[in-house]
Write a protein that binds this DNA or RNA. Structure first.
Lengths: 355, 355
DNA sequence: TTGTGTCATGTAAACGATTACATAGTGAAA
DNA sequence: TTTCACTATGTAATCGTTTACATGACACAA
């Protein structure tokens, strides 16, 4: 067994209280005692048991993180931001992924509460209707949402404005001369973000005088991107020239699927992603996308949460700025002449450099 | 304050022992008592405090995970595998990233031990020389390595054979007719995996009668891929036609950098990655790569660790199978006629007319 | 001298659970 | 009836800390 406070106190010839004071940096210790305690600690290799401490102080110094998945780097990035801030304040984090399932949300939140986390940072399916959040409210456990669309009921959240971003995408694509739009989105009811982005896109298009775009929803977990793309681009007379994807992973997959159909990006179809994950700017063509400040979002949320845990009033909702990063996957609308699908393209174009 | 066992026992009119027995599913309870206890629990919304339990049982039911970074999806995947197995056995995980720093390794391991994790799963810089591992051995805390190259001193590890894999890449490229090889690798002393892959590559090439390849090492955290690639492909007479990258992220970036130099993949240069991350098969061209069973690796490691925690003897080292996934980033060696490199940044060069 | 304030330290009661041991009640075997 | 085995439950110690309160020593002022 590892040595305890008691062992140390015995060896140093003092009481446990004195050792505890030493560990916690009380300056009410005589030099001699401090020295003896330090020696005893070193000799035994004593390491304070944080369970005992947490039990007594009723603070575990740990925070739970609940995200849809670690497979999407956008969430991994946020976790990095959280970790950085948390470990500065000596908090540990417990990460769990829900794979976009509401049942899982409730389960993991329960499990984290059992574990006595001091607070949670989470991205839920739908911030306006979430049993998990209701439970947190009921038990008045501090929490902060990230990524979720800022909600009506004023829940603490650090996010961007997905609706505005979606709208901007519409305007940007229209500027490039596009007139036929489509959206490839994760299940709208599995993600309030996706829904908000779609809503903004529709709204923007409406303002510009266009009908709602074609939309295909795919599963987050097992997305059948090829099928969805084939569906969207099936009708040669109504073929979109601009495709907005609800996240970068989908966008990258979509570009591949379009290529398989013999459609070139951006010559035949412009593609816009969402998130701004790192690989997006590594792939060819470089992805045009709406960049979220993921690391910052995580960091800010962690600060917010820790403040709340410490009893300060939360500042949120906090809306961070996003920006559109121009890549090579978008370009001016072509003449939109129907191209037969599946046909190999003999001529090779290089993507136009954006200025 | 949330209700405790005592509150429940009081409300149910029984002793705390009885409530505890009920919670832990002892079958020595009369039906009537069980019912009353259940009602009391429901009425109070009682949630057992796992700190108290852990303190008493000396088992926190949590495991620490230490990986270089969450930014590389390969590690995120492993974490998913770990999570799945862990939560099945009711373990929570605490994830920390070291950003490839040995100092950080020691720090986070210390912090996790303070937190009384029952064991750890980690990927360290160098499994043969790791203060963090030494500390774990010294305190005889159960742990399992993943990704790390199986070590001489027989540490518990679940991994693939990086040397063999590197060798296979050499053979595969030679089969395609390549004769000039290069390697783009993360800092060899920051990653025993990278070192092993390089070693295998060199070994394979030697067996085939080739000299050691050109190599450029880059930082994991702030990799300057473009510069490294420019360096490797600078000499028109010695220009490689085959490039092996120590991970997929580097490979994807390398393909972009090559393109900026006016070199086409796979026509001018074949590129092979390592890891088998999902995006690798989404990008264009699809990446040829050595696929590690990351999720499985995490899962197996978690099982191993939990077994060890439960007192069973570990099975490791365990070497899982890898496989080479043929993509579109490799092809037969071209005629290898020197192509003038394109200046990546056109604004730096004055047009010929002005010279 | 006595009183008072400060300082360094000790004593012991928590925190919320688990569990060895004790006990009382029951029914059946002797 | 006594005894025994069992079952259902209670009592109380314990896990490793923290911390309110108590204590004793000392210095200094009155």
């Amino acid at each position: 067994m590892s040595p305890t406070l008691k062992d140390v106190s015995r060896l140093a010839g003092v009481s446990t209280a004195t050792v505890s004071r030493f560990i916690n940096g009380s300056h009410q210790l005589s030099e001699g005692t401090a020295l003896r305690v330090q020696r005893a600690i070193d000799e035994l290799g004593f390491r304070p048991n944080s369970l005992g401490r947490s039990l007594k102080t009723a603070s575990s110094k740990s925070i739970g993180v609940v995200i849809p998945t670690l497979s999407n780097p956008v969430f991994a990035e946020a976790v990095s931001g959280i970790t950085a801030v948390a470990s500065d304040s000596d908090y540990s984090i417990m990460v769990t992924a829900t794979e976009y399932s509401q049942d899982q949300e409730l389960k993991v939140v329960n499990s984290l509460l059992d574990r006595q986390v001091d607070g949670l940072i989470l991205t839920v399916t739908n911030a306006n209707n979430s049993p998990a959040l209701d439970m947190l409210e009921a038990e008045s456990v501090p929490y902060v949402l990230i990524y979720n669309q800022a909600t009506l009921n004023n829940r603490p959240v650090v996010t961007i404005d997905n609706v505005v971003a979606g709208r901007e995408v519409a305007f940007r694509l229209e500027e490039l001369g596009h007139q036929h739009f489509a959206m490839l989105s994760g299940n709208l009811h599995s993600s309030d973000r996706a829904a908000a982005r779609y809503q903004g896109f529709v709204q923007g298009l409406a303002e510009l005088g266009f009908d709602a775009p074609l939309i295909q929803e795919i599963e987050f977990s097992q997305p059948n991107t090829s099928a969805a793309i084939r569906e969207l681009f099936a009708d040669p007379l109504q073929r979109p020239t601009a495709l907005f994807c609800s996240n970068d992973l989908f966008a990258i997959a979509a570009i591949g699927a379009l290529r398989e159909l013999g459609l070139k990006v951006p010559e035949d179809v412009s593609v816009v992603g969402f998130d701004g994950i790192t690989v997006g700017s590594l792939v060819q063509p470089k992805l045009t996308t709406v960049v979220q400040p993921s690391t910052e979002m995580g960091a800010v949320a962690a600060k917010e949460l820790i403040n709340t845990i410490c009893g300060e009033a939360p500042q949120s909702p906090l809306v961070l700025p996003h920006k559109v990063r121009e890549g090579e996957s978008t370009g001016p609308a072509g003449k939109h002449e129907p191209v037969a699908l599946q046909e190999p393209n003999p001529t090779k174009f290089f993507p136009k450099e954006t200025l």
